[in-house]
Write a protein that binds this DNA or RNA. Structure first.
Length: 834
RNA sequence: GCGGGUGUGGCGGAAUGGUAGACGCCGGGGACUUAAAAUCCCCUGAUCCUUGAUCGUGCGGGUUCGAGUCCCGCCACCCGCACCA
């Protein structure tokens, strides 16, 4: 009566259309059901959906469908993070407009997502490059400006002196420009900043309320915000000036043997008349602006003639200009304590400065010779006059007190977090809505003139910012005085686009960014899922925007994402030829134990399993897989085996196994026997236990465990003889897999009932059916397993002990030794200690 | 350099301090078939003196009747570092 094979090539599309036509996944904000907002980080439209997307969206999809089965009104939207550099690169390489390149990518990727059968509300789709979206973003940016959260200052960028253009960190390879190959320099530009540091305390405290965020992400954000307590004080300099410095280790002040200031510190700049100083400052401009580049660069210093007077000893300390001191952090000047800071240690070794230990592990080791690195650890203070014998903690407090009493310093809090530079000298982003007027200065674009749209007619033939070069776009009249003025040609960092998109998904009125009442209905996002690579920047910026908008009175929500899940990457084995060139998986095959190239039989080395990437050619295209196995097999693969937070190795064998399981289920679903009677208590119990366990696993996002349980129940149902219990078990499996393999589930459901299984309820379980009658307990002798016993559940300690001692195997192991102790854990084990 | 993480069979991984290896993949053996595919059944951590025993969760210590799990110290690998998204 039915085919004995499930055919996804016809079923998948049929059910996808059925869901579309019924509007099954359209979220109704007026529903009186409890609301659930499930969101995956929206994709950048790079051109093709990759396996990482499939994994991410499958997890969210299972949650969304499960929540719906649990009676929730679910919002599960999708859109496009559409601004960014790849579109401009494509424009340069392929001579296409970034907008049309992006639009056609979106169209292709949307079709791919549809083929996987995601339960998405497409009615709310948008792209961040839609003028409507970025216009509202400009309005929000102006609101933040009015509230004093936006300002301008000069800041360093990577400058390519050959291409005459600003480079992203990504475009700096080994300190050189990626196109020109020229040595990159630091250059200062006037740029726009958002005052995220005003929210440092709030963002830090807010982490405490995020109970459903991974600890590691919270810890990373905490370290990133980097609250530190320390002492800010001033050295008196030999030239009569004062040098304010900040230190987190005032306890080590007697170990200071030099001071170091940043190259762009005012004192350094004041000495720049000296050609040697000027040359050194120039030297410091070499190299990129990333933390890693700065930290790993060789420590360089220039010894000035100035000395600083130690506040306690009065000793003169040499003042150096040094490349490892940052003007952006603290005061741009530090006291160097080589004994207890690794950077200072290296610097002191290089420039032959004294290295004195002032914190020792204990008094005995106080005068042991210093090793070849600094000692940053805790201990007791030595060689420090009145601090001797104090703990690090007490010494810190003592020095701060004395500085405050003496009026030469004070205890302060310093944050590692820096204000967010949002200026980008690029075309494909949100234009920053300001006008520079010769007479009025900086003037916001009036809101009724938003959006400030990007011009369409731009060229990418010459490097640099096309908005700057455009013949007319930047020339405007001042909105205040009507005089000649110039548009801001910087665009906003793409991270601003992704800092509020979840609000626009929840509510999208035409005349404003969002409607507070709708926000109140849906926010916060209940489940937010995405890559660990966003642990800091995107997630911190989104938290910041939400708090900033709340401070502006736009809504009450303070934290956008109630729970966060960071998923692992999809990886694949790599294949290479003897010459080191990479081969793609479909160019090779296994020949016995070895790998060969299909084309000519050349030997191939199977290498490490790493993240799928174009450069390693170990990419598997989801479309080809769906074509061959259907959407459900791929979805099942994404959920199986690996825990979702870890990497998932893609394998051909694995997807084959999923395909076989789809067919196994299909055959099983055909075996409901309406004439069957009788109870199979063991199977019924397994089914009830699975209903509870799979629900718990899905809610904990432990999809791999849910999958294993479904395999177990399936195996048991297959083996069982027909009975009412078996029919129940089969129908249970059908509902348990519905969120994971929705097409197969609909197809099978349609043959036994009317309506969509997507609209069905999660099966009910019977509490009484969960309890086992019998348990297997372990019998140990001195902690080693000797025997097992099957006993009724709840057997008494005495009975268990007697049964254990009666075991022949146990007696042989004890071998007549004296029994000193017997530990009995009911329903678990008996441990006999001799 | 700084910060974060991971480590269990041939592979992916299970395991409230209580029977290590659930479940899947690979591999081996068998059934069915003219044959193949599909399907079904059985086996599959290592070693040995094989009715059984010993060893075994990156390495070295410790706590405990009992440690993959808790504590201390290492090693290896991976990820992030503010203009990639």
């Amino acid at each position: 009566m039915t085919d004995n094979r499930f055919d996804p090539s016809s079923a998948d599309g049929r059910w996808q259309r059925a869901w579309d036509e019924a509007g099954t996944f359209t979220a109704d904000s007026n529903s009186d059901k409890p609301k659930s907002y499930v969101l995956e980080m929206f994709p950048y439209p790079s051109g093709r959906i990759h396996m990482g997307h499939v994994r991410n969206y499958t997890m969210g999809d299972v949650l969304a469908r499960y929540k719906k089965m649990r009676g929730h009104e679910v919002l599960h939207p999708m859109g496009w993070d559409a601004f960014g550099m790849p579109a401009e690169n494509a424009a340069m390489e392929k001579k296409v407009h970034p907008g049309s390149w992006t639009r056609s990518n979106i169209e292709a990727m949307k079709a791919q997502l549809k083929r996987i059968g995601f339960a998405l509300d497409w009615t709310r789709e948008f792209a961040t490059c839609d003028p409507e979206y970025y216009g509202h973003e400009q309005a929000l940016f102006l609101d933040m400006y009015e509230a004093g959260m936006v300002y301008r200052r000069s800041s360093e960028v990577n400058w390519d002196p050959v291409d005459m253009t600003v480079l992203a960190n990504e475009q700096v390879i080994d300190g050189k420009g990626w196109r020109s190959g020229a040595e990159v320099e630091k250059r200062k530009l006037d740029q726009w900043f958002l005052k995220i540091t005003d929210f440092a305390e709030d963002l830090l405290d807010g982490l405490g309320e995020l109970d459903h965020w991974p600890e590691k992400v919270k810890l990373m954000q905490e370290n990133w915000i980097g609250k530190s307590q320390g002492l800010e004080f001033s050295f008196e300099l030999s030239n009569g000036e004062k040098l304010p410095v900040y230190t987190t280790r005032p306890d080590t002040i007697f170990g200071a043997s030099f001071c170091a200031i940043a190259a762009d510190h005012p004192i350094s700049q004041g000495l720049a008349d000296d050609p040697a100083v000027a040359a050194f400052i120039e030297e410091c401009k070499r190299g990129g602006t990333t933390a890693a580049a700065l930290e790993t660069a060789e420590k360089l210093g220039y010894r000035t003639d100035i000395t600083a007077k130690h506040p306690f000893t009065g000793e003169p300390l040499p003042v150096f200009i040094a490349n490892f001191v940052l003007m952006d952090y603290g005061t741009g000047a530090v006291m160097g304590v080589p004994g207890h800071d690794q950077r200072d240690f290296e610097f002191a070794t290089k420039y032959d400065l004294p290295i004195q230990r002032v914190v020792a592990k204990d008094l005995e080791s106080a005068d042991a010779p210093m090793g070849d690195e600094a000692e940053p650890g805790d201990g007791v203070i030595i060689h420090s006059d009145f601090l001797n014998g104090l703990s690090v903690e007490h010494a810190k407090a003592d020095v701060i007190n004395r500085a405050e009493d003496g009026g030469w310093g004070e205890g302060t809090t310093v944050w590692r977090l820096r204000d967010w530079g949002v200026s980008r000298q690029r075309y494909w982003g949100t234009p920053i809505p300001f006008i520079h007027c010769e007479t009025c200065g900086i003037v916001p674009v009036p809101k009724d003139q938003l959006p400030v749209k990007l011009p369409e007619d731009v060229d990418f033939e010459t490097p640099g910012n096309p908005l700057e070069r455009h013949p007319t776009w930047k020339h405007v009249d001042c909105p205040t005085c009507g005089g000649k003025a110039r548009r801001e040609t910087d665009t906003l960092d793409t991270f601003t686009n992704s800092s509020w998109y979840f609000l626009r998904f929840a509510s999208q009125p035409e005349d404003k960014p969002f409607d507070p009442e709708e926000i109140a209905k849906w926010m916060p996002v209940e489940h937010y899922i995405g890559g660990i690579e966003h642990a800091i920047l995107h997630l911190l910026y989104a938290r910041f925007w939400t708090r900033a908008l709340a401070r502006l009175g736009k809504f009450e929500v303070k934290e956008p994402f109630a729970s966060l899940f960071t998923q692992g990457m999809v990886t694949h084995e790599t294949y290479s030829l003897g010459d080191g060139s990479w081969l793609s998986p479909d160019e090779v095959r296994k020949d016995g134990a070895d790998w060969i190239r299909i084309e000519d039989g050349a030997p191939v080395t199977a290498g490490r399993v790493v993240k799928m990437s174009k450069s390693k050619k170990n990419v598997v295209d989801p479309d080809n897989i769906i074509e061959k196995y259907g959407a459900d097999s791929v979805r099942w693969f994404m959920l199986s085996d690996s825990p979702p937070e870890r990497d998932l190795p893609w394998s051909e064998a694995g997807i084959e196994g999923c395909w076989r399981f789809v067919q196994r289920l299909w055959r099983l679903f055909d075996q409901i026997d309406q004439t069957a009677t009788g109870e199979d208590k063991a199977l019924a119990r397994k089914a009830h236990q699975a209903i509870v366990a799979v629900a718990e696993d899905i809610e904990a996002l432990s999809f791999n465990k849910a999958v294993a349980r479904i395999y177990e129940l399936t195996g048991a149902a297959e083996k069982a003889k027909p009975s009412e219990s078996r029919n129940f078990a089969i129908r249970t499996i059908l509902h348990l897999i519905a969120p994971m393999m929705p097409h197969l589930a609909e197809e099978a459901h349609a043959r036994m009932a009317s309506g969509l299984i997507a609209d069905a309820h999660w099966p009910e379980h019977d509490e009484a059916m969960l309890v086992e009658d019998e348990v297997t307990i372990a019998v140990q002798h001195k902690g080693k397993l000797r025997d097992t016993l099957t006993v009724p559940k709840g057997a008494s300690k005495e009975d268990l002990e007697a049964l254990a001692l009666a075991s022949e195997k146990v007696q042989r192991s004890i071998d007549g030794a004296e029994i000193r102790k017997v530990i009995v854990v009911p329903d678990r084990l008996v441990n006999i200690v001799t």
